[in-house]
Simulated scan of single mutants.
Amino acid sequence: MGVRQESAAWAATLRRHTIPTELGPCTVRVQQGFGNGSPTTAAPEVYLHGAAGSWTSFRPLLSEASPRDRVLIDLPGWGESTGEARLEHLSIEAMGHAVTDVLNSLNYTRWNLVGHSMGGFLALHIAAAWPEQTASVAAISPTSFAVSKAARKPLRSLPRFPAVVGMMLIMRTLAVLGPAAPPLIGAVGSTPLMKLLMAPFFADPRGISAGVIRRLGHDVRPAGFSAAARAVAHYDFDRWRGIRCAVLATRGETDVFTSTSDLDRLASTVPVVQAVAIQHCGHFANLEQPEKVLRLLEDLWSE
């Protein structure tokens, strides 16, 4: 396990680790909480990004110090975990094992999961598969039932979920370009076109800085996105009935990926769920309404 100090001034307390998993080496950043004498004395906050992101999508939630350790993971196939990623083996089960392998390597035996989009889906799976170790789940705009159906039946789902199906088709097309796709998307990310393309994912695109848009463009991995879509297509959601911890599930009021019906079905599937609709927000509440998300997280963890 390799370790080096993060160079950015704002992230001086983060330490970078590279941890082997069955899906390839996983890059992880860890910040020790001010309330912990050692990494095993409290359940850490574990952040799981979406299928078009990396750990950096959680930056707005990290401005204040936490009494708990923070673990920020670039899942295999995304961010800095792309080099030797074995996407041909990617499944929700394999990603769950990759995350728990990382946490076990860091000597954590219990965890609080915070997942955005695909990361919310993954967090719910981990809570069902490892109920004793999962203390809580916060699923921010979790892509779940609708996205799974769209991945199985894209043409039938197109009229109801055009943004979901459209994104899947675009990513599938770009994935054909292989390693050339991320640099191409990154180049587009530096132009006004990227803000136009990302506009449907925000309630107020004008309030999103050019830097955030560039970072989102930089983090897009078409091959990883397409592999994740295949992985969720035939997932057995009845597994989530075995979740024992408290679950917070949110969606933005203009969310194009997570529907109201998704949260309703989630509430009927998972034993203990607090479903929250966030006003003036799209799919990226962690970027658009971080203060609201932080208040919800603190309420969840204080319980």
Rank of each mutant, 00 (worst) to 15 (best):
S7H: 14
S7W: 10
A8V: 08
W10V: 10
W10G: 00
L14S: 03
R15H: 11
R15E: 07
H17L: 06
L23C: 01
G35M: 10
G37P: 00
G37H: 15
H49Q: 06
A51R: 04
T56F: 04
F58R: 01
L61C: 08
S66P: 01
L72A: 02
S81G: 05
S81W: 01
T82M: 08
G83A: 15
A85D: 01
H89E: 14
L90C: 08
L106W: 05
N107F: 09
R110Q: 14
W111Y: 15
H116L: 08
M118K: 07
M118R: 10
G120E: 02
F121L: 10
L122A: 06
I126L: 14
T134D: 04
A135D: 12
S136K: 01
I140P: 01
S141F: 00
S148W: 10
A150Q: 10
L155Y: 14
L158C: 00
M167G: 10
I170D: 03
M171Y: 06
V176L: 13
L177N: 02
L177H: 07
I185H: 03
G189F: 03
G189Q: 03
G189R: 04
S190I: 03
L196I: 13
L197T: 09
F201G: 01
F202Q: 05
D204L: 07
P205G: 05
R206N: 11
S209N: 09
A210S: 15
V212K: 08
I213N: 06
H218M: 03
G224C: 02
A231W: 00
D236N: 14
F237V: 02
A246L: 12
V247G: 07
E253K: 12
T254G: 03
D255G: 08
S259D: 09
D264N: 14
L266H: 10
A267K: 09
A267S: 15
S268H: 13
V273L: 03
H280L: 07
H280E: 12
N286Y: 06
L297E: 04
L300Q: 12
